[in-house]
């Protein structure tokens, strides 16, 4: 469903992502983890077609995200860490707008069901300014799921959600995966990754350290079976002493966050 080959993103002379290759099948949930500045957000932005890769290819549902952008984008949804909403559109107007963008004919039924599922149906006529951070996040999710995407990217999906919201979000992600969606989650919350991801990709300084199932990754970074949890694995994988971990790159130029 998602094929990434030799993805490289340069900002001037700075390498944000280097020669990243991996693929994702329908129903898989990939956890994209790494320390701050590892290149996670840049990777997700390239995968979503927001920024063009400098080199390499990204295919979503068989469509190249650069050459065949429209067909590729029709199949995906990208949830940023901060909900990005139009402040003059109400909750329902957001859904109406997104429906037309993605050509969702029966959006009224799907939209109403999503609002119910996310428990913001009573905020249908509210503007984003009247919503809490968590509700904005829910609205962004409702907009993203309206066209039933086959590929979903999450950048820190649990930020701002209350405990019940977190539980529902996890369930929702797993439900979409069971229904055949390919999902990538970028997060620092390793317990979330451990709970819901079937695969793990660790990035450091723009380079892939490891990509595999949780068992494969655990096996590689455990000295003895069962001696390390995901947190310990993360530290081992990204430590400077790990021979696979790339050396730190110079800092980014101002304005180019990763």
């Amino acid at each position: 469903m998602v094929q990434v080959e030799s993805l490289t993103k340069l900002y001037g002379e700075f390498t944000a992502v280097s020669e990243l290759t991996f693929s994702l099948q329908p129903g898989e949930v990939l956890g994209l983890v790494g320390p701050n500045g590892a290149g996670k957000t840049t990777t997700l932005r390239c995968l979503a077609g927001i920024i063009p890769p400098t080199r390499g290819t990204v295919r979503v549902g068989g469509h190249d995200i650069v050459r065949d952008a429209i067909d590729a984008k029709k199949q995906l949804a990208f949830f940023t860490d901060e909900p990005r909403l139009f402040d003059y559109l109400t909750v329902w107007q957001h859904l109406n707008f997104i429906a037309r963008i993605y050509q969702v004919a029966d959006y009224e039924r799907t939209g109403a069901a999503l609002l119910e599922e996310l428990e913001i149906a009573n905020k249908r006529d509210a503007l984003p300014g009247e919503l809490s951070r968590g509700m904005k996040q829910k609205l962004a999710i409702a907009c993203g799921l309206l066209h039933s995407p086959r590929v979903i990217y999450f950048d820190e999906p649990l930020t701002g959600l209350d405990p019940l919201g977190i539980r529902r979000m996890k369930d929702s992600i797993l439900k979409r995966a069971r229904n055949g969606a390919a999902i990538i989650i970028s997060s620092h919350l390793l317990h979330l990754v451990g709970e819901i991801c079937s695969r793990l990709l660790i990035l450091k300084n723009g380079q892939k350290i490891i990509d595999g199932t949780l068992e494969e990754v655990t096996r590689k970074f455990s000295e003895q079976p069962g001696d390390a949890n995901l947190e310990e694995i993360f530290f081992r994988a990204t430590s400077e002493t790990n021979p696979a971990a790339p050396a730190a790159a110079p800092p980014l130029p101002p304005g180019n966050e990763r």
Binding site: F97, I98, Q103
Partner: peptide, 29 residues
């Protein structure tokens, strides 16, 4: 100032020319 929700200037269906959605949105703005 605090904004108030505004009604759209015309009804927008789920299908049709996609760019109309941006026009519809900005008219609300």
């Amino acid at each position: 100032k605090n904004q108030k929700a505004k009604r759209p200037w015309f009804a927008l269906s789920g299908t049709g020319f996609s760019a109309t959605a941006l026009f519809w949105k900005n008219l609300i703005g």
